[in-house]
Design a protein around this nucleic acid. Structure first.
Length: 526
RNA sequence: GGGCCCGUAGCUCAGCGGUAGAGCAGUGGACUUUUAAUCCAUCGGUCCAGGGUUCGAAUCCCUGCGGGCCUACCA
């Protein structure tokens, strides 16, 4: 359960009525805050820190090694443990670099020692003093002076079980980060993955760009968009579902290598693998085709894994994913035939294909198109088996409207998807740059949409106009960053790799209390 | 959307038809080298919400809210 908002801030007064525990804890800390304020500002703007926690420890060890005197340091951080024992106290102080112990002694601190009783776990503290090593060997700051940098008003999660309630972990991620080392580690790995991706593309001469999130048409993928409204223009706009069509406009504009790491939004369900907003990496390279892109993706994954985890053998559950060996390469038709015995060229119409799918236990909606049925067979029967990185080349052109057809077989698109640990990691094409063909394909999709398929591509006339000016042949790539991070961390849920995953709206707060709180607030001046 | 599981103190959990519990945190006390400090004492509950069954409900039933997993949907 979540803490309630401090609607009780206007204290209910010392009427002796039993206060709820949480409120009582809050009130105690508020009182300590007041008392600290009498001795100085409990929220000063500047600190006099000279060393991070880990720097302080290192400085002492260096001095020790060279026989110099013990350094005097000022450290600052959050109090994560507090051991008071009569006339001595030990505090664990944690900052972004790590932890350092601070000792306070009555004979050194005098009156300031008594004020230590106003400290709680969670407060931020600054302490200055000489470093020494305790009897148990720990490098410690012997405080000659200290002050509070931030008084915390709510208690931190319990010190060794931490916080496990998944809901609280997601809704109050800061508590999760305080309590759970693993959550901090995942966040860092994600940051490292993104940084590594950027370095990779920079080194290859790609330019990073930003394209609009609010769009007239949400194109470039098949997904339901979010709709919003622009008041001044009095017009509905869509949140983008991909980056594709704007990046291609940049190829037309003359930038040969562009990429974007951008948030996209898809109005779909939420589950272990899907979050309504997620980060997409897309890159476009002129004068390259999808085979060039495949080679690049392989290099990219190795690079990221090497930089992030140091190993090209990535553990995922019971599986070890090997990124070092050349990735398996197969084709859509061959893979499907090998895994299910279904050769789709033998089923050119929906009815027969549907029957073949049903014979293999795959059932689809009545309205499903030929491509949809095929995709369903693939994703339920084949994709989950693709644990090791596997390139699947040459998708049916039917459901690849933005890809170029193969020169020797127009029923096939120059497209590949890369799979690992059972799901799609990357999707790439030799990009369709024939404006006539592209217009036909988009119109086809648009009629599907008119026919009730609200996830079909929309015809983006502005994009088609751009295409008519000529786009160089190019290889394009899309990678779901969260899925890549899941692979790199071994996490099975996308919510673990998104700091603030989408959650339902919180339940209405306890009846009556909010109104009462508001009344008190509005009556506050009376 | 469907199925299963969960919701008890600030945190982690026990209790599962008969007076609401433990550890940690808090408060008071002892303690000048602790580090899950220790020891003594103590405060703390809308048992998610609403309805029902029952002499009696945290416990059983129904509904709702929130969460998790599975499934469906999902380029």
């Amino acid at each position: 359960m979540l803490p309630r908002p401090p609607s009780f801030w206007p204290s209910r007064g010392p009427d002796g009525a039993a206060m709820p525990t949480e409120e009582e804890l809050f009130a105690q800390r508020l009182a300590k805050r007041e008392e600290l304020a009498r001795a100085g500002n409990p929220y000063p703007a500047v600190t006099a820190r000279t060393h991070t926690a880990s720097e302080a420890v290192a400085a002492f060890e260096a001095a020790e090694g060279s026989g110099q005197g013990a350094p005097v340091v000022t450290v600052a951080g959050r109090i994560t443990a507090l051991r008071r024992m009569g006339k001595t106290a030990f505090l664990d102080v944690r900052d972004g670099s790590g932890r350092v112990q601070v000792q306070g002694r009555a004979d050194v601190l005098g009156e300031a020692f008594e004020l230590l009783s106003l400290l709680d776990l969670g407060d931020f503290l600054e302490a200055r003093g000489e470093l020494f090593r305790t009897r148990t060997g720990e490098v410690t700051v012997s405080a000659s002076e200290w002050r509070v940098l931030t008084k915390a008003l709510r208690p931190l999660p319990e010190k060794w079980h931490g916080i496990t309630d998944t809901e609280v972990r997601y809704r109050q991620r800061y508590l999760d980060l305080i309590a759970n080392e693993r959550s901090r580690e995942i966040a860092r790995i994600r940051a490292d993955v993104v940084a590594s991706i950027r370095r990779f593309f920079y080194e290859r001469g790609f330019m990073e760009v930003d394209t609009p999130v609010l769009q007239e048409h949400a194109g470039g993928a098949a997904a339901r968009p979010f709709v919003t409204h622009h008041n001044a223009l009095d017009r509905d706009l869509f949140l983008r579902i991909s980056l594709e069509l704007h990046l291609k406009r940049l190829l037309i504009g003359g930038f040969d290598r562009v990429f974007e790491l951008g948030r996209v939004f898809r109005n779909e369900g939420i589950d272990r693998r899907h979050n309504p907003e997620f980060t997409l990496l897309e890159s476009y390279e002129a004068y390259a085709d999808y085979l060039d892109v495949a080679n690049m993706v392989e290099a990219l994954l190795r690079r990221v894994a090497g930089e992030v985890g140091g190993s090209l053998q990535v553990q995922f559950g019971e599986h070890t994913v090997d990124l070092a060996a050349p990735f398996r390469r197969t084709t859509y038709r061959e893979l499907l035939r090998d895994e299910t015995g279904l050769d789709y060229v033998e089923y050119p119409d929906v009815a027969s294909l549907r029957a073949a799918a049903a014979a293999r236990g795959v059932r689809v909606e009545e309205s499903a198109s030929w491509g949809k049925v095929l995709d369903e067979v693939m994703s339920t029967l084949v994709e989950p088996k693709l644990i090791q990185p596997t390139f699947v080349f040459d998708y049916p052109a039917e459901f690849s409207p933005l890809a170029k057809r193969k020169a020797d077989d127009p029923s096939i698109a120059e497209r590949f998807e890369l799979f690992a640990i059972g799901y799609e990691l990357a999707n790439a094409y030799s990009e369709q740059n024939d404006p006539v063909e592209q217009r036909e394909r988009m119109r086809e999709q648009a009629s599907k949409q008119a026919g009730g398929d609200d996830e079909a591509e929309v015809a983006d006339e502005d994009f088609l106009l751009a295409l008519e000016y000529g786009m160089p042949p190019a290889g394009g790539l899309g990678i779901g960053v969260e899925r890549l991070v899941m692979l790199m961390t071994g996490e099975a849920s996308i919510r673990e790799v998104i700091l603030f995953p989408a959650m339902r709206e919180r339940a209405g707060r306890d009846t009556g209390d909010d109104e009462a709180g508001d009344d008190e607030a509005s009556d506050g001046g009376a």
